[in-house]
Amino acid sequence: MPTDTKRVRGPEVSQSLSRFICKPETTLPSDGTRADGRNRDQVDVRPVFVRCGLVSQAKGSAYIEAGNTKLICCVYGPKETERKDETDMKCGRLFADMRFAPFSCPERGSWIQGSQEKDLSLMVLESLQPAVCLHKYPRSQIDVNVMVLENNGSALAHAITCASLALADAGIEMYDLVLGCSIRQDGASYLIDPTFLEESGSNWASGENQGSLTVSFLPSLNQISGLQSDGEMGEETLTAGVRTCIEGCYKLYPVIQQALVKAVRGAAPPPSES
């Protein structure tokens, strides 16, 4: 059975306070506006704050804030790859690692296991791979590290966006930016860009069509590079959900583009007087 060998947990008997709080079970209100004022069934992604080039040591870095979800991503490379296979002769490798800070979730590291982080890292890798021109970097490897500082829902989707920004900031050649968007299906309506409370599994009512879906999308090329769904949903719901996520990505696109342009402009030398 996989165990979490990477963290030092508190003593076995320690428990999180949240179990002792006598609060009634909060289930999602089934209609009306959401807790943060957004609407159901509308493509209402949270406004994001994005900045590139924060970490000076890394080749490229990016920081994203969406609501209370805060993530930072650093890119190191391209550098010589440690393992040499024949496949490396033709194209480079991408390594992605996504971690959660122990204080990032309401309960200290207890609901997320090491294997889940690996799963998310794999998803980030699969989403970024189609976008990076790896054949331009033979025998090299590029490391992408995402750290979630505070998790208030949609961590994976924003991690993907952040990672692609960091790659662009690092000057790595890419076919397109990768944007992530996630959606939470609650019965007949959906909630786009869910918060942590809206997302967490224990709040799932039992009924039809309960689940969540994360899509990572390349907007200019109109390609889906990553797709992951959870829970039980019918096919029409799934396809509608994918379309909604794509729309959400399109909404994010201009903001991300702008942030990147700003970063480049800031870093570019002033035009020479001639």
Binding site: E126, P130, I224, S225, G226, S229, E232, M233, R243
Partner: peptide
């Protein structure tokens, strides 16, 4: 007829249309 988990694996990208085709 419901789907409990859907996931794309592999290092390539898929057209949304082909995904819809697959789930059609």
């Amino acid at each position: 007829g419901t789907c409990t988990c859907m996931r794309k694996v592999g290092g390539g990208s898929l057209d949304p249309e082909s995904i819809f085709e697959m789930t059609e």
